[in-house]
């Protein structure tokens, strides 16, 4: 399931109207959250969305660690290890395909 339904009733809208309402919703999400997050919201399942968000949090943690490390005088080999960890973390964060293009 991509997005939990907000109603158990069948929508009364004709397909064209529903499509227009969805278009408005998508346009708002792109303006408010950006294209990538709008895709996360529209294209991914709930489980995938949680996994994506965890990836974002992990990337945030890695970046904070990198910022903290930049202020320290690490030996070169240690710094290389940290840099590799950071790159690995970035690789695991894959945005969904852009089906709106």
């Amino acid at each position: 399931m991509k997005r939990a339904p907000l109603t158990y009733r069948r929508r009364p809208w004709p397909p064209q109207k529903l499509a227009r309402l969805r278009e408005i919703e998508h346009a708002f999400q792109v303006r408010a959250f950006g294209e990538e997050l709008a895709r996360v919201n529209f294209e991914l399942t709930i489980k995938e969305r949680h996994r994506y968000l965890e990836g974002m949090r992990e990337l945030g943690r890695q970046n904070r660690r990198a910022e903290a490390l930049a202020k320290t005088n690490l030996p070169a080999d240690e710094a290389k290890k940290w840099h590799r960890d950071l790159q690995d973390a970035r690789k695991t964060l894959k945005p969904p395909a852009d089906k709106w293009q």
């Binding site: 997005r3 339904p5 907000l6 109603t7 009733r9 929508r11 009364p12 809208w13 529903l18 309402l21 969805r22 408005i24 919703e25 708002f28 999400q29 408010a32 959250f33 919201n41």
Partner: peptide, 16 residues
Amino acid sequence: WAAVTALGVRMIEADD
């Protein structure tokens, strides 16, 4: 606030 509006749009779309 962006989440509030996003929820509102989905509600209208769902006939709420």
